[in-house]
Amino acid sequence: MTTSGKRPPRSDAPWDLSFLRIGIVATAATAAVAALVTGLLAGWGDAVGVLAGAAVVTAFFTVSGLVIAWAGRIDDTFTLPAALGMFFVKAVILFPLLNALPEDGWLDRRTFALTVVVGALLWSGVQLRWVWTRQLYYVPPPAPPASASSADPERPAPGG
């Protein structure tokens, strides 16, 4: 709200979710290399933990991005509650999931959990870089400049 009590005009700019593609590619490449190295050094059960952890992190960040963008399309003030709500939902899902895994099961819990932490840091880095390299406006962007012929109707157009 402004000091006059009116809401500023909403931007018609669409929510850009291109960071999802970048995050998915970065996670897939990192997980493939990490799973191969982990499989050779620690065993293939640990490698499956790496792949499962990367899949969970990718799903969580993708769903969060979509929900936050959906909330932002409705009203910008809904984005923070949507982000915090998704964080809570992810924690409520992840903690029981980790506890439900058997300690000596085919999927190594420690490797899975470590992969989730590393994956979250990777995705955070992708999002930070994406934001730092975009031209984002904190106010509605200015209108493009008018051409010389449309700026002054009494002035003849060049060459005419």
Rank of each mutant, 00 (worst) to 15 (best):
W132P: 00
L41H: 10
E103V: 03
A32R: 06
P142R: 10
A157Y: 07
A26L: 09
A42T: 13
F60S: 04
A59L: 15
W15P: 08
V116E: 05
A82P: 06
G49T: 08
P158T: 02
A29L: 14
V33M: 07
T38S: 14
F61C: 02
S11P: 09
A69M: 05
G72C: 10
A42D: 10
T27M: 11
L98M: 00
L107V: 06
A157P: 00
P9L: 13
S150L: 15
P142G: 05
W15N: 11
L94D: 00
F112R: 01
S18P: 05
A157Q: 03
R7C: 04
A143G: 10
D152Q: 06
L84H: 08
P145M: 10
G53Y: 00
T58L: 01
D75E: 08
S11R: 05
S147D: 15
V67D: 00
A69P: 00
G105N: 00
P102S: 02
M86H: 06
A71R: 03
V118I: 14
L97I: 01
K6S: 10
L20D: 08
L51F: 04
A69D: 03
W130T: 01
W132Y: 04
S150M: 09
F19L: 13
L17A: 15
A29E: 06
P102Q: 01
V48D: 02
L41R: 13
F78C: 05
F78M: 12
L80Y: 10
I74W: 05
G53A: 00
L80D: 14
K90G: 07
S147V: 05
W44D: 07
L114T: 03
F87L: 11
A82H: 09
A91G: 15
G160A: 08
W70L: 06
T77R: 13
I93H: 02
A146V: 15
G49P: 04
P156E: 06
S149R: 15
T111E: 02
A13P: 03
A151N: 10
P14Q: 06
D104F: 03
P8D: 11
V117I: 15
K90R: 15
L98G: 01
T77K: 10
M1A: 12
W70C: 01
G39Y: 12
W123D: 07
I22V: 14
F78A: 08
G85I: 08
V25A: 15
V139D: 08
L66D: 04
V116S: 07
Y137F: 09
G105T: 01
V117W: 08
P9W: 09
W15Q: 11
M1N: 12
F95D: 01
A69Y: 00
V33N: 07
L20R: 13
P158E: 06
L41Q: 11
G43E: 13
G23D: 09
D108G: 03
A71N: 05
A59G: 11
K90D: 04
T30D: 02
A13V: 12
M1Y: 10
S149F: 11
A28V: 11
P102M: 02
S150P: 04
L51Q: 01
P8Q: 08
G85L: 14
S124A: 15
A148D: 13
V118S: 10
G23W: 11
A157D: 15
L97M: 02
V67Q: 00
A113I: 06
I24H: 11
R129A: 14
A47D: 03
D75A: 08
A34S: 12
A113S: 12
